[in-house]
Design a protein around this nucleic acid. Structure first.
Length: 827
DNA sequence: AGCACGCCGACT
DNA sequence: GTCGGCGTGCTC
């Protein structure tokens, strides 16, 4: 007999102070419904307010005083929401990223499923004017009662909005007088859709039954025949598709031939997009070799990571799909991560075409309900493949065979908000759990991954040839300094101009890449040096000519550009720096007959506009495509033969250890957009720093030589992969408070690391102002820890303690502390 | 995080 | 007394 009677429960509070498990008793009548991973409601706190919680484990004994124990009040779902493996993942994330249990759980369960409790207030007896006249009520109490008369059942939050004071203590006194009644109500955002369907009760002898029916029962016969062929029909479709009324069902039910069932219905987010079914392609020798190396490891169910270094256009997607075929044959499941789903529509289409209904696509544009349904399809085994961006790494499969991470080096795999997890790190953890294969693919692997491959931690796979047998595009580096000396002040060098012109004559498409949107990047007074900056951020404002305002790309503040300098009154205001909008303008002037399309955040923010623009490019409605980062990835247009990189060194001088890596990756990625069809591609790279090794290496498509130079730098300055970084950012509206807290944090950190004898390879830098020292009215200071330790548990423990100490004591009112483990960048 | 409790000053 | 405001500490 089962003996367990206590459960360790995590309570749904997004607070560091409740970041632990609480022991609850399991009432006898719930004992078979409470299992590990169950979602439950438990009484919590002094008021025994019901809150949502998650059962992490069950105990036989009791570890705390019996008097303290409370009991689980109810179980919320039929089945447990978190498998034991997922719970282990939560525990690992909590320690790895210094987040709360709930932060981690929220990554795993679909958003919107959580219950919130809302405090609702009702008047239980009204107070007459006379009673009021006799006194005994304060103005505030009266004000509250007045609101309650108008709104009989308001939440406390809504009440607060309607009043000009905080009603909490007033409510307390009114409750004591028995005038109001406070209760808690559960609220949640999405529900599982259900639908009634009609099914046959006795399938085997149905034809026999049909023949026994009365000759007049035409409708009954028709329905039974339909069901014999199709299995079921939805109640809602009865009328429209078969013209059968409920009474037919009723009489058939009475005869025991059919019954009505309620089943879960899935919302189908992409139902209206029929995709052409496609089969596997033949593989090149190189591709075949890669597939053959991976397959055996899917069968043996042992964790095995691979790094697939394949040049752009080498046919990685086809390799992924053929490996997944094998995974399915082993009745295992696959997750495919892509950097940003909206930027890789072509890849998604190919997956849908190949795997049809066996695939769930997770992306940010899904509604809460759609997301829940996709999640359930995965959890219930209705699909075997999940494709999506970062968060798809949490797809609730039970029997994972592989996780594929395409464009493994992309920064979008690192979460920007707590928990600041990296999808590749999570993928690695899950693959270890399942004994699955981890396949990281990239044309320009991250330094960290390639280093691991070199050390043998990852198995290296290589594809050096393009699928279409074309050579990689030729890359020409243009020194913009000599252009300037020649008197060319335009954004186009002579040779880029010539190449574009030639492309137009040949009726081939051109991509121009500039990683910066807007018209001018900053405006400045030539008299006094004033620069227009955002009043809320430490950022200069970008001029957008189409809409004629200057705006902040961090907080979206906007204003009219000044005609005269607000500082010195001079009228010598000048616009500097070029963005995509300006390139568009200049290009239009230089090539008046060319059809130009701009592809950046400003032109694609409306829903569906991205898809429309892509379609237009495909149909040849554009000669020149101008865009930011978003054109660097995944686009596959065979008629593009020329790529121009307007300013290759733009990111090179950022205060960031990944600057060179980012530059190399970007040039290589954009260059890869050229020459995907039959014709050879050409690339022109404009730069003021042509000698830089990142640019030199990209000219020869030489990742290895780039890697070898960059890795030396990393080693010398002790950057990843030779150390691990932790970035602690302290932010708040009062700079003095921010500095005070940051100082306090750093001092405590140094002290505790000293007294706990954490080796001296651990170095604490700062506090110092963050590179973006003010965003949205908040000053930001940071502390950076560079650590060579493999095991960081002790160090993280200290950081966590100090953080809790500071937030506990309210020492840091209005101050937020954000901890980023393995940050991608320091901004 | 939320919430109760307890203390203190102010007001009736 | 009782109300309202605020700091403190706890939640199985």
């Amino acid at each position: 007999m089962e003996k367990t009677s206590y459960a360790e429960v995590v309570v749904n509070n997004r607070s560091n102070q409740t970041n632990m498990t609480y022991t609850y008793g399991i009432p006898k009548d719930l004992s078979d419904r409470v299992s590990i991973g169950s979602r439950v409601m438990v009484p919590f706190g002094k008021g025994n307010k019901l809150v949502e919680g998650y059962v992490l484990s069950k105990d036989e004994g009791l570890s705390i005083q019996l008097s303290k124990i409370k009991y689980i009040q109810r179980v919320l779902d039929e089945e447990s929401l978190l498998s034991e493996k997922m719970i282990d993942l939560c525990k690992w994330m909590r320690e790895e990223y210094l987040c709360t249990y709930m932060d981690a759980i929220q990554c795993i369960i679909p958003t919107g499923i959580s219950y919130k409790t809302e405090k609702k207030i009702r008047l239980c007896r009204d107070v007459s004017m006379e009673e009021w006249g006799q006194g005994g009520f304060t103005d505030r109490q009266w004000a509250v009662m007045k609101v309650l008369r108008k709104h009989p059942n308001v939440s406390e939050d809504a009440l607060r909005q309607l009043l000009d004071f905080d009603p909490s203590s007033t409510l307390r006194s009114l409750e004591a007088k028995n005038i109001i009644f406070i209760e808690y109500q559960l609220k949640n955002n999405v529900s599982i859709l259900t639908e009634k369907v009609i099914r046959l009760s006795a399938k085997e002898k149905i034809h026999e039954e049909i023949s026994k029916l009365n000759q007049n029962a035409k409708k009954q016969k028709q329905l039974l025949e339909y069901l014999a062929n199709h299995g079921e029909i939805a109640w809602s479709k009865l009328k429209e598709s078969l013209d059968i009324s409920p009474s037919t069902i009723e009489s058939l039910t009475k005869k025991g031939l059919v019954h009505v069932e309620t089943v879960e219905k899935r919302r189908v987010p992409y139902g209206d997009f029929p995709v052409e079914a496609t089969g596997p392609h033949g593989l090149t020798e190189e591709q075949k070799k890669v597939v053959e190396q991976v397959i055996p490891h899917i069968m043996d169910a042992k964790y095995q990571p691979f790094l697939l270094h394949g040049v752009t256009g080498s046919g990685k997607t086809e390799v992924y799909m053929q490996i997944i075929d094998q995974v399915l044959k082993q009745s295992k499941e696959a997750i495919v991560l892509v950097p940003e789903i909206s930027l890789t529509p072509q890849m998604i289409e190919r997956f849908k075409g190949r795997f049809g209904n066996n695939i769930a696509v997770l992306h940010s544009k899904l509604s809460l309900g759609e997301r829940l349904d996709e999640w359930n399809r995965i959890k219930n085994g209705e699909v075997k493949i999940a494709v999506g961006a970062r968060s798809a790494v949490f797809a609730p499969f039970h029997n994972l065979g592989i996780i594929i991470v395409d464009e493994e080096h992309e920064h979008t795999y690192k979460s920007e908000s707590s928990p600041k997890y990296h999808a590749v790190e999570v993928a690695e953890f899950r693959c270890r759990q399942h004994g699955a294969v981890l396949l990281l693919g990239s044309a320009t692997p991250s330094l960290e991954s390639y280093y691991k491959a070199e050390k043998g931690e990852y198995k290296k796979l290589v594809m050096q040839n393009r699928y279409n047998q074309n050579d990689l595009p030729s890359i020409q580096i243009v020194d913009m300094r000599t252009e300037l000396q020649k008197g060319n002040k335009s954004v186009f060098s002579e040779s880029l101009y010539r190449e574009i012109k030639q492309n137009l004559e040949n009726k081939e498409q051109t991509i121009l890449f500039l990683n910066r949107r807007g018209y001018s990047t900053f405006i400045s007074c030539r008299n006094c040096g004033y620069v227009a900056k955002c009043p809320h951020c430490e950022i200069s404002l970008t001029y957008h000519k189409n809409v004629h305002y200057i705006s902040c790309h961090y907080c979206h503040y906007r204003q009219q550009p000044p005609d005269i300098c607000p500082k010195c009154g001079s009228k010598y205001i000048k616009y500097f720096g070029a963005g995509t909008e300006k390139i568009e303008k200049v290009t239009g002037k230089l090539f008046p007959t060319a059809k130009i399309i701009r592809l950046d955040l400003d032109t694609t923010s409306r829903k569906g506009s991205m898809e429309r623009i892509m379609q237009e490019i495909k149909q040849g409605k554009a000669d020149i495509i101008i865009g930011t980062q978003m054109i660097a990835k995944g686009l596959d247009f065979p008629n593009v033969t020329l790529v121009g990189v307007i300013a290759a060194d733009m990111n090179l001088n950022l205060p960031e250890f990944r600057a060179a890596e980012r530059t190399f990756q970007l040039i290589t990625q954009v260059a890869g957009r050229a020459g995907r069809g039959r014709r050879m591609g050409r690339v022109v790279v404009q730069t003021y720093d042509p000698e830089h090794f990142a640019i030199q290496a990209s000219q020869n498509h030489d990742f290895i030589s780039f890697y070898e130079q960059e890795i030396l730098m990393r080693k010398e300055f002790l950057y990843p992969p030779f150390s691990r970084l932790i970035n602690i950012t302290i932010a708040g509206t009062k700079e003095s408070e921010v500095i005070k807290t940051a100082d306090h944090f750093a001092t405590a950190l140094r002290q505790r690391m000293g007294s706990e004898k954490i080796p001296s390879e651990e170095t604490v830098f700062g506090p110092s102002p963050a590179p973006l020292s003010k965003i949205k009215e908040k000053y930001r200071w940071q502390i950076v820890i560079k650590s060579k330790l493999i095991d960081q548990t002790a160090l993280k423990g200290i950081i966590n303690n100090i953080r809790n100490d500071i937030t506990d004591r309210n020492y840091a009112n209005d101050i937020s502390i954000s901890i980023d483990v393995n940050p991608f960048h320091m901004l």
